[in-house]
Amino acid sequence: VQPDGPGVQDTDFLLYVWVAHTSKCHGEPSVIAYAACCQLDSEDRPLAGTIVYCAQHLTSRSLSHNKWGQLLLTTPTVSHSLAKHLGVPGASPGVPLEEGPLSSHWEARLLQGSIMTATFDGARRTRLDPITLAALEDSGWYRVNHSAAEELLWGHGSGLEFGLATTCGAGSSDFFCTGSGLGCHYLHLDKGSCSSDPLLEGCRMYKPLAN
Results as ranks from 00 to 15, higher is better:
residue 112 Q to D: 09
residue 99 E to V: 11
residue 67 K to H: 10
residue 162 F to N: 00
residue 135 A to L: 10
residue 72 L to S: 02
residue 146 H to W: 14
residue 52 V to L: 15
residue 158 S to H: 09
residue 87 G to A: 15
residue 158 S to M: 15
residue 175 F to I: 06
residue 46 P to G: 01
residue 195 S to W: 05
residue 75 T to D: 06
residue 194 C to I: 11
residue 5 G to S: 15
residue 144 V to P: 04
residue 20 A to E: 00
residue 46 P to K: 06
residue 172 S to T: 08
residue 82 L to N: 03
residue 163 G to E: 00
residue 17 V to A: 12
residue 57 H to D: 04
residue 108 A to F: 00
residue 85 H to I: 05
residue 106 W to Y: 14
residue 204 R to W: 02
residue 51 I to T: 10
residue 141 W to P: 01
residue 59 T to N: 15
residue 163 G to I: 02
residue 90 G to R: 12
residue 211 N to R: 09
residue 30 S to R: 11
residue 45 R to H: 11
residue 93 P to N: 07
residue 133 L to F: 05
residue 26 H to I: 07
residue 138 D to Y: 06
residue 93 P to W: 05
residue 12 D to M: 10
residue 67 K to P: 01
residue 20 A to D: 11
residue 140 G to C: 00
residue 139 S to Y: 03
residue 182 L to M: 08
residue 49 G to K: 05
residue 104 S to C: 02
residue 81 S to Y: 06
residue 93 P to K: 01
residue 143 R to V: 12
residue 165 A to Y: 03
residue 168 C to I: 01
residue 8 V to N: 08
residue 17 V to C: 09
residue 107 E to Y: 00
residue 206 Y to W: 10
residue 102 L to T: 02
residue 104 S to F: 06
residue 133 L to H: 01
residue 88 V to I: 15
residue 8 V to T: 13
residue 71 L to P: 04
residue 102 L to K: 07
residue 204 R to P: 04
residue 192 G to N: 09
residue 117 T to L: 04
residue 166 T to F: 03
residue 75 T to P: 00
residue 18 W to G: 05
residue 111 L to E: 00
residue 142 Y to Q: 07
residue 73 L to F: 03
residue 7 G to K: 06
residue 8 V to R: 13
residue 90 G to F: 14
residue 104 S to T: 09
residue 60 S to N: 15
residue 38 C to R: 15
residue 175 F to D: 02
residue 12 D to P: 01
residue 104 S to N: 12
residue 148 A to S: 14
residue 100 G to H: 13
residue 21 H to F: 02
residue 101 P to D: 08
residue 167 T to D: 04
residue 119 T to L: 12
